[in-house]
Design a binder for these strands. Structure first.
Lengths: 251, 251
DNA sequence: CTTTATTGTAATAATTTGAGACAATAGTAT
DNA sequence: ATACTATTGTCTCAAATTATTACAATAAAG
C-alpha cells in the first residue's frame, strides 16, 4: 500500500490533529493522573479502589488530562467524579515515570472486558507517566461511583489491599509515606473528619496515620495549644461517663 | 491537495511513528523536566541558570524525556550534561501543569535565536507539563556547560535571580520551599559540601538554607549527637587559632 | 446515691535546647 | 621564648518543652 513518505509541515499538522482526535480524544498523550483517596471510618484508614469489568484487575482511580485543562483541574475532576464531593483536600505528591510501569497487556484486558475497540484506543496501550495525588475526605459523606471502565469501587483498609495493577501498590505506599510526613506539619487531619468531632476522634486519626499510640493528655494539650480548634457544644453519647466536647477547626 | 481522511489503524501507527520522528525526535510529547541545581560557595546558595542565544531569556536547565528512558534517568542525564558530575543527589519535587505556564512566543524566540527551523520544531511550541527536580552538588567540583540552545550557564545567588522565562521563578521558589522542608529531616546537607568539611562549613550550609543564625554550641552538640559524622584529621588553615577537625559523613 | 468509665486540666518529673563559661590551640606579634 | 588573638571543642547551668501522673468533674447505669 502506498503511503506518503514525505509530507510538508502543513500536512503534518493536519495529520497530527487528525490522529490526536482519533487516538487521544483531546487528551494529552502519555500522561495520566492517579489518585489515592483516603477516608477514615473511625477505626481504620481506607482508600478507594476500582475493579475493572470482567478482568479481576484492581486499580487506583485515575484518568487523563484534557488538552485545555490544567493538571490540577484534571485530578480534581477525577476525584469529584468518583466521590461526588466538591472542595476536596487534594495534594500532588509524585510523578511516576519508570520504563516498566506501563502494562499494555493489562490495558488490553480492560479494553476487552469493556468491549471497547482495541484499535480506536491504541493510545491507551502506550507508555504513561502518572502524576499522583492524594485526597483526604470525610468517609461518611461519600457514595463512591465507579468510572466508565469499572464495575465496582470500594473502600479497602490500607493494610488489606488487593494486588493492584501496574505500579499502583507502589503509588499507595509512596502516598502513605508522604501523608505521614506531611500530616503534623500541615495540620490536615480535619479533612478526614466531619466538621464537628471529639478530641478522641481526632486522636484516633493521628494514631492511625502516624501508626503509634499517643498519650491522651499530651495530645490534648498540644492540639489545644495550637489554637486551631473552636470548642462547640457537648456531645451526649448516652454513655455512662463524662460527655466530651465537640470541636471544629477555626477559619 | 487531497489527503486521506480515513486510514486503517496500521496506517495510523505508521503515520504516528513518522510524525513522532519528525516532530518529537523520539521524545515523549508535552512533557519536559526542569532542574533546580543548587550549589554552595561557602557564603551563598546559588543555582545554575541558562541564557539562550540572542534572546536575553533566562531559564532553568531542562529537557525532554526519551521514549525509552525513565523520567528519573532523563533528569539525571540533564544534570550530568550540565555539570559533568555523576552520582548526583537529585530529587523530584513537583510537576507543574497549569494551562498558562507554556509560552510559545518565548519558545519561538529561542528557536529563531538558534537559527532553528520553526516548522521542524513546532512540537516545542505546544503545551508542556514540567516535572521538576532539585539537585544538590558540590560547587567546587563543577564546570557548568551550556546546552545546545544556550549561550551561557552561570551560577546565580538565589536572592539575585534574573527574571526567568515561563514559570521558572515559581519553580525555583517551590524548590526552595521543599528543600527547606526536607533539609533537616533527610540530612542532605553533605551533598553541598566536599567529602571532608569543618563543623563551621556545615553550620554555614544550615544557616544559609534555613535562613537563620544557629548557635554554634547547640548546633555542634545536636549534629554530633546524631552520630552521623566521622571525625577526620585536623585542618591547619594557617590561621592564628585552634585548628578545626575535618568531618565526613558516615556510611 | 453509689459506681463506672471517660474527660478536662493541673501538677510534677524528665528531657531537650539555649546561653555562657572556659580550657586548648595555631599561628602572630613582641 | 613569651605573651597575645581568634577560634574550636566541651562542659555547666538555666530555660523551655515534653512526658507522666494525679485528680476533680461528669453522664449514665445499677
Amino acid at each position: 500500500m502506498p503511503f506518503c513518505l514525505y509530507f510538508d509541515s502543513n500536512m503534518v499538522d493536519r495529520a497530527k490533529k487528525k490522529i490526536d482526535n482519533i487516538e487521544h480524544k483531546g487528551f494529552i498523550p502519555n500522561v495520566s493522573y492517579d489518585s489515592v483517596i483516603f477516608g477514615f471510618n473511625g477505626k481504620q484508614l481506607k482508600i478507594l479502589i476500582l475493579e475493572y469489568y470482567n478482568t479481576g484487575l484492581f486499580a487506583l482511580p485515575g484518568g487523563f488530562v484534557k488538552r485545555n485543562e490544567s493538571l490540577d483541574a484534571a485530578a480534581e475532576r477525577g476525584v469529584r467524579e468518583r466521590t461526588g464531593l466538591d472542595q476536596i483536600y487534594l495534594e500532588q505528591f509524585y510523578t511516576f515515570g519508570s520504563l516498566t510501569r506501563s502494562d499494555p497487556q493489562a490495558m488490553e484486558r480492560i479494553l476487552e472486558g469493556n468491549g471497547m475497540d482495541r484499535q480506536a484506543h491504541q493510545w491507551m496501550l502506550d507508555r504513561f507517566l502518572s502524576v499522583s495525588y492524594y485526597a483526604l475526605i470525610n468517609y461518611d459523606e461519600v457514595t463512591p461511583k465507579p468510572d466508565e471502565l469499572s464495575d465496582n469501587i470500594n473502600w479497602y483498609p490500607i493494610d488489606e489491599l488487593p494486588p493492584l495493577m501496574m505500579d499502583h501498590n507502589q503509588i499507595v505506599n509512596k502516598a502513605l509515606e508522604v501523608l505521614r510526613d506531611n500530616f503534623e506539619k500541615k495540620l490536615i487531619g480535619m479533612n478526614l473528619l466531619p466538621s464537628k468531632f471529639t478530641m478522641k476522634q481526632l486522636q484516633m486519626v493521628y494514631e492511625t496515620i502516624l501508626g503509634k499510640k499517643l498519650r491522651r493528655t499530651s495530645f490534648q494539650r498540644r492540639i489545644l495549644g495550637m489554637d486551631i480548634l473552636e470548642r462547640q457544644e457537648k456531645l451526649y453519647q448516652g454513655k455512662a461517663h463524662k460527655a466530651p466536647y465537640l470541636y471544629s477547626f477555626k477559619s
